[in-house]
Design a protein around this nucleic acid. Structure first.
Length: 486
RNA sequence: CGGGGUGUGGCGUAGUGGCUAACGCACGUGCUUUGGGAGCACGAGAUCGUGGGUUCGAAUCCCACCGCCCCGACCA
């Protein structure tokens, strides 16, 4: 069926990126649709990827002093409505429980779209003195936002995430916390998922409802579109004031604490797929890959089978105690009664970083052929070398994927000066566009209306640069990062 | 919610008023196979989205409803 023998059961990435993405998610058995529109069933292989990034992020969150907690799924309507901007921002997306126990509820219950309001209300009594601060909490939970258009992992009506909620005595301390949250995300994205990110502050239009400002990391997918990969919000005193939280400070003055919140969701599974995948399917960084190495035994006759399986068992035993950057080596021997070609395609589609082919010739020579998923490069290695070589190869592979992604992002980031140039570059090349912007929301809206691109962030790593706004020519101090986004 | 599509075994499709609804993939059993998605044989699997109507006869025509997909507005 396939002319060149390689994976052909999925749409080509270059022809139809959206079709490719869907095929990969379904055929690599990451997720499925559910009986409820827009909701997602996460299958074992997809959930293992999520667990890996979740656990890594959890380590960062705990290492920076936060404790995991739990707050309920339901938020009384009156409570959600306390912070005016917040309710306005979320209202269209909230799912409500109106009946329970066969009777209409006297007050509707929101299924949490996020937990700021509930938490602010709940911690009021916990915060009496500056000595009760900072309060550093994190929730792993699910939230519901009734999206009109959904895509597996990227935008589902219900999704899994982590939401950190913190309260501080001073604005400076809260500001530091916003940076801490964003840095957790940067670390996981870059070091674990091998996805380079641009850090920056959101424009007013893109700021979280109820926040004073929002920081974010943005990543580039292989179709050159942007994906918001994590956000960290300075809530100021907004929610504390709405909920009436006050503490007595050192100087015997009652004050509202300053809050932050930050979130990272199952959307990052989608980001990992779209940042690294290719026409053959998933390409997973070794740190998140549920399987890092698959051994494919190859034989014809019975005596070959015996010899090959003996060698396979020796290799597997020699690799049993091997550790990698993300824990014990995750290895599987594919003993299914299928042809080798079938297995190659099967595991390439699933993005396993390395496969080890071991046939009669290899068994006789105490060697195996190691094939790298990302470029199918092959090398023959002595079996005895594998316990030392595999962890090194996996680390190199992780680094190479990151470098490749950095190169791709740099090659597709363009500096433009005028709206004309902006439009032409976006049409012809896509990608990230760094353009001078005066800060006026009307200019931002006009770019969006004319090109479909939005301001992703005003990047921290771009130096201040006097210029003229790409839309109205007004003086600008910095460049904003624009892109078409998910 | 506006515009455009579409609904037939698990998946992808054919069938557009007439016999027992057809084909490919996938699935089960057996034999032969196995270094890039193996072959043959036999087999199981379908209230044709739902309800109503027209007709001697409906997967096919009509009406209503429901679901899903794509494009827009909302968004982690």
């Amino acid at each position: 069926m396939p002319k060149d023998g390689f994976v052909t059961s999925i749409a080509r990435q270059s022809d139809d990126f959206a079709g490719w993405y869907n095929d990969v998610v379904r055929k690599a058995e990451l997720a499925d649709y559910s009986p409820v529109r827009g909701c997602m069933i996460i299958r074992p292989y997809g959930y293992a990827i999520w667990e890996s990034m979740r656990d890594e992020l959890d380590r960062h969150i705990k290492a920076s002093g936060h404790s995991n907690v739990y707050f309920p799924l339901f938020v009384p309507r009156s409570l959600l409505e306390k912070e005016a901007e917040h309710v306005e921002g979320f209202d269209p997306q909230v799912a409500w429980v109106t009946h329970a126990g066969g009777e209409a509820l006297s007050e509707w219950l929101a299924i949490r779209p996020t937990s700021e309001a509930l938490i602010a209300e709940s911690v009021r009594d916990w915060i009496q003195s500056y000595r009760d601060l900072p309060l550093l909490m994190n929730l792993w939970n699910n939230v519901v936002r009734w999206e009109l258009r959904t895509r597996l992992f990227l935008r589902t009506a219900e999704f899994l995430w982590q939401e950190a909620h913190t309260f501080h005595a001073t604005e400076d301390e809260a500001a530091d916390e916003v940076a801490t949250g964003l840095d957790c995300y940067r670390a996981v994205a870059q070091d674990w998922l091998a996805i380079p990110v641009v850090r920056g502050v959101k424009s007013r239009a893109e700021t979280f409802p109820g926040a004073v400002y929002t920081w974010a990391i943005e990543a580039m997918m292989r179709d050159r579109r942007a994906l918001q990969a994590g956000t960290s919000h300075m809530l100021g005193q907004n929610f504390a004031r709405a909920a009436g939280i006050e503490f007595l400070d050192r100087d015997n003055v009652r004050r509202h604490p300053y809050g932050t919140s930050w979130g990272f969701s199952t959307r990052m599974v989608g980001a990992t797929i779209m940042a690294h995948g290719d026409d053959a399917g998933l390409v997973l960084p070794p740190n998140v890959a549920p399987l890092q190495v698959v051994i494919v035994p190859i034989f014809r006759r019975e005596e070959e089978r015996v010899a090959v399986m003996a060698a396979v068992e020796r290799v597997a035993a020699s690799l049993a105690g091997v550790r990698t950057a993300s824990g014990p080596l995750r290895l599987r021997v594919d003993e299914r009664d299928e042809t080798p070609g079938f297995k190659y395609n099967h595991w390439e589609l699933r993005g396993v970083p390395f496969r080890l082919e071991l046939g009669p010739r290899d068994a006789a020579a105490d060697q195996a052929v190691l094939v790298r998923r990302v470029d199918r490069a092959k090398e023959t290695l002595p079996l005895a070398a594998l316990p030392d070589e595999l962890p090194r190869r996996l680390a190199d592979y992780q680094a190479a994927l990151f470098e490749r992604a950095v190169g791709f992002q740099e090659a597709n980031t363009h500096r433009v000066e005028t709206l004309y140039e902006f439009r032409a570059t976006l049409e012809e090349q896509g990608g990230f566009l760094l353009a001078p912007w005066c800060g006026d929301a009307a200019c931002e809206a006009r770019v969006n209306a004319e090109t479909g691109a939005t301001i992703r962030v005003i990047p921290f790593d771009e130096p201040a640069e006097a210029g003229r706004c790409l839309v109205d020519g007004a003086p600008s101090e910095r460049r904003a990062l624009f892109a078409r986004a998910y």
